[in-house]
Computed example of a mutant assay.
Amino acid sequence: MTHSLGLREAADNLGIQVAPIRMIEIEGALQRELDSIEVYQDAVEAFAILQDYGIAIALCSNLAAPYGPAVKALMPNHAAYALSYELGMMKPEPEIYRSACNELGIVPEHLFEGTTEVVMIGDSPRCDRDGPRTIGIHGFYFDRKGSGPIHDLKQFAEFVVNSPRDSHR
Rank of each mutant, 00 (worst) to 15 (best):
G136W: 12
L74R: 12
S124A: 08
R32K: 10
R98L: 04
Q155C: 09
H110V: 03
I106Y: 10
G105Q: 06
Y67P: 07
R126I: 08
K154A: 12
L50C: 08
F156E: 08
Y40V: 04
T116K: 15
A70Q: 01
I57K: 10
E117G: 00
Y97C: 10
K154L: 12
P76E: 14
R126N: 08
E9S: 02
A65C: 03
F47E: 09
P132I: 07
E158G: 00
H3S: 05
P94I: 02
G105M: 06
E113A: 13
A82H: 12
N62W: 03
Y40E: 05
V160T: 07
L111G: 00
R126D: 12
I21T: 11
D52L: 11
P125E: 15
S124Q: 11
I55W: 13
G136S: 03
R133G: 08
G114R: 05
H110R: 15
C101R: 15
D52C: 10
N162A: 03
L63I: 15
I96R: 07
E38S: 08
R98S: 09
Y85Q: 09
R22C: 09
E86H: 08
I49G: 11
T134V: 06
S124H: 07
R169V: 04
E45A: 15
A65W: 14
P20W: 02
R144T: 13
H3E: 13
E117Q: 09
D52M: 13
D128P: 06
L30R: 11
M120T: 04
P92T: 03
H110A: 11
D143M: 04
A19Q: 10
A48V: 11
P149N: 13
E33F: 07
R169S: 05
G136E: 07
N62K: 04
P69N: 09
G68A: 14
A58F: 10
I21H: 10
A11D: 03
P69R: 10
I16V: 15
I135A: 00
P92S: 02
I24Q: 15
I106V: 15
A46E: 03
M75D: 00
